[in-house]
Simulated assay, not measured.
Amino acid sequence: MTVAQFNRLKLEAETIKPKIGARILNPKEQLLSGELAAEINDLLEQRGVLVFPLVHFTDEEQIQFTNTLGGFAREIRGQDVFPISLDRNVNQEAVEYLKGSLFWHIDGTMNPVPIRGSILSSKVLPTWGGNTEFANCYAAYDDLPEETKAEIEDLTVTHSMWVSQLYHCPEPTLKQLEDWQSKGEAELPLVWKHKSGRKSLVLGNTAQQVVGKSLAESARILHGLREFATSEPYHYSHEWSVGDAVMWDNTGSLHRAMPYDPDCGRLLHRTILMGDETFA
């Protein structure tokens, strides 16, 4: 394909649901060209999650594609590509950490600048379950009653890694708890006022307590907003086929994996988009 032909490329996309998701239909060579990057980034913010069906990225191609979108970032352990699997032969050190992915969350709430998004490619399917679910927290915020928006506008929430681990390990040893708590805490806005001018909800399993509210009232606020944000209009569940790639906006959505057989070998490869915006 010539440069002139690349310059005429148009993004081929179809809406998945009215308030979340789009399916990208361009062939892989067009995606890797970088010519569609600006349109893809714009659509990602609008739709929250983008699906690239049966694109069959190799690891090198997935890194290349991630780079076209504005910046590839290495994983916390230094990998270029992170294997998402509960198989200890694949990912011995991260299995306990990955169990937290079974609950609604935003990646990087302990980081001053969270990652902008992630891309997952399916390599091995589960024997059962294992869909990945997403919720559009931009659209959910937009649809809140004005009275609720006013009530939560300036609230802040304490987030901590150790609270998220209690979802799947409610009775940790003291050593486990101390290790989790060593990762620190962060006080984040409940309503993220983005540099684009849009607003989204900052929720998930790291959310511990609304500052200035009791634990009981905090739970009602946080769980109520999460229930609303993950309800049908804002929710998309992706059933994987080998070769699918899915990208989501980590700054304006929640995600989680649905339960699956931990011994089935389910495997996804993840690359991440470098963040460029602090929580505000």
Rank of each mutant, 00 (worst) to 15 (best):
Ile221Val: 08
Asn7Gln: 13
Ser200Pro: 00
Tyr97Gln: 13
Asp154Glu: 14
Leu125Ile: 10
Ala4His: 11
Phe82Val: 03
Met161Gly: 01
Asp142Ile: 09
Gln209Ser: 02
Val81His: 08
Glu35Phe: 11
Pro262Gly: 14
Thr148Ser: 00
Pro112Tyr: 06
Asp276Gln: 10
His238Ser: 10
Tyr167Met: 05
Gly184Met: 04
Met274Ser: 09
Arg74Phe: 05
Glu96Gly: 11
Phe228Lys: 15
Gly184Ile: 09
Gln92Val: 06
Thr68Gly: 03
Glu75Asn: 14
Gln165Met: 08
Lys17Tyr: 10
Trp162Arg: 07
Gly265Arg: 12
Phe82Glu: 07
Trp180Asn: 03
Phe72Pro: 06
Pro233Ala: 15
Ala219Asn: 09
Lys123Ile: 05
Phe279Tyr: 10
Thr15His: 09
His223Ile: 06
Asp42Cys: 04
Tyr138Val: 04
Phe134Tyr: 15
Asn131Ala: 11
Ile63Val: 10
Thr58Arg: 15
Asn67Asp: 01
Val191Tyr: 07
Ala22Tyr: 03
Leu201Val: 02
Leu54Cys: 05
Leu166Val: 07
Ser218Gln: 07
Trp248Ala: 04
Ser118Cys: 03
Phe6Arg: 15
Pro172Val: 13
Asp276Ala: 12
Lys183Ile: 00
Glu133Ser: 15
Arg220Thr: 11
Ser101Phe: 04
Thr278Pro: 01
Val113Lys: 02
Thr109Asn: 04
Val49Glu: 01
Leu215Met: 12
Leu166Arg: 14
Asp154Gly: 11
Leu11Thr: 13
Val113Asn: 02
